Computed example of a mutant assay.
Amino acid sequence: MCKKWKLSAIVLSTALLFCSCAVQSNDGEERETTVNKTEEKVDKEKIRLDALNPTAYGNVEGLNLEPGTYFSLLGKAASGDYWDNVQEGAQQAVDDINEALGYKGDDKVRMVYSGPSENGNVDEQVNILDEELARYPAAVAISIIDSQSCDVQFDLAAENGIPVVTFDSGSNYQNIMARISTNNTAAAEEAAVHMAEALENKGEVMVFVHDSRSITAKEREEAFVNKIKNDYPEMEVKNIYYLEDLDSLKQTMADEINGGTYAKAGEEARVNEDPETQVQAADITDDELMDYIFAKNPDVKGIYGTSGNAVMTAAEQSARLEKDVKIVGFDATEEEVQALQDGSIYGLVAQNPYGMGYAAIVASARSILDMGNEAEIDSGYVWVDADNIQEGEIAAMLY
């Protein structure tokens, strides 16, 4: 079973450091550290790797890979704070393997990270997976955008002896060797507890979900909604919006405008049956759509987002409309952290993309070597809010 990890104290006292510092790794390279307000130094990499459960996925011991072994790592996007951290963790695992085995030059184990140029583009991710399989990597690790999209490719991988592991967002495909992810149920339930705390256990909540296709999104939505429903009788999840459906919602808005049941700001509601002058969905801006959503939820006191995109959509639009709502959700990118510090966001579930990337390489290597894998690997998370964000061990998990 996945368990919420507890941060262990990895603190070294120092009297001289006052801002940020670095520690030397065994190979002489500087590794990033974080210094908190009490002038204590913490090793970011160690904290992130110690968060992994089982802990065996935070080191490369016993991974005696053949020279030139090639891993393929596929994310949901080519770049971005979150995915850059995944790539960084995976590359560190590869570097650690090469150091442990003494591989240099052409003998080095290699990893190539790739992802869609547009975050969440299913077709592009499938095409990239096809291309990677044609290169016959030793193993593939993938964060699946659509849980139903890659089964054909996974069959092909199995036929060619290429093991597949998933990270961040998985699939129910039977032959996945290991699944590395946040315990989304526990994390979403914790977000619900903090939302209730922020609203004093009463009021309406609106939910923005990053998609309707990934297992990750479904778990985060269902756990949050069920926690509110079961434990907070004076709270209600009023409406749920999927980011991918917002454009189609513009058609509903256009129909209501033309039917006289809704009017844009500064306009009067009136029936318009003239096809030549009717409002078209394509004419509605994103800001106007958000006006419509908030108008449909006038009593909402809180917004929950299942991803960084969903959280920032809520924060930016709430600020634009000067809505006093409490926002909680997932991820801890630089933009989200700034919004939290500004008071626009109440709190965040910071995942561990660095640890996911590292564990993805370890799990892939174990699959290649027939060492066996745990079916589920918990990458860990922490709750971040204004009260704890300055703590070194919390700050180490931000990205």
Rank of each mutant, 00 (worst) to 15 (best):
K6A: 10
L7Y: 05
A9N: 12
V11C: 04
A15Y: 09
F18N: 13
C21L: 05
S25D: 12
R31G: 01
E32C: 05
T33L: 06
T34P: 00
K37Y: 11
E40H: 13
E40F: 10
V42Y: 08
R48F: 05
L52E: 02
N53E: 04
A56R: 15
N64Q: 13
N64P: 00
L65F: 08
L65C: 10
P67W: 08
A77L: 01
A77W: 01
Y82P: 00
D84C: 04
N85S: 15
V86D: 01
Q91M: 11
Q92C: 03
V94W: 02
Y103Q: 09
K104F: 04
K108G: 01
S114H: 02
S117D: 07
S117R: 13
S117C: 01
N119A: 12
V122K: 13
D130L: 05
E132S: 11
E132L: 11
R135S: 12
Y136T: 14
Y136Q: 14
A138P: 00
A139S: 14
A139M: 07
S147H: 12
Q148M: 06
D151W: 07
D155T: 14
A157K: 06
N160Y: 10
P163H: 09
P163A: 11
D168E: 06
I176W: 08
A178H: 06
T182H: 02
N184M: 05
A188W: 02
A188M: 08
E190D: 07
A191H: 03
A191V: 10
A196Q: 07
V205R: 08
V205L: 14
V207S: 07
F208T: 08
H210P: 01
D211K: 11
R213W: 03
A217K: 07
E219K: 15
V225I: 15
N230M: 10
E234M: 13
M235D: 01
M235V: 09
E236I: 09
I240F: 08
L249F: 11
Q251S: 13
T252R: 14
G259Y: 03
G260P: 00
T261Q: 03
A265G: 03
V271M: 10
V271F: 12
N272V: 12
E273H: 09
P275W: 04
E276H: 11
E276D: 10
Q278R: 14
V279T: 15
L289S: 12
D291R: 15
I293N: 05
N297D: 08
A314W: 06
Q317D: 07
A319P: 00
K326W: 04
F330M: 12
E336P: 00
A339D: 02
L348K: 10
A350M: 06
G355N: 03
A359T: 03
V362S: 02
A363H: 02
S367A: 15
A375F: 02
E376C: 01
S379W: 01
V384K: 05
A386V: 06
Y399W: 13
Y399A: 06
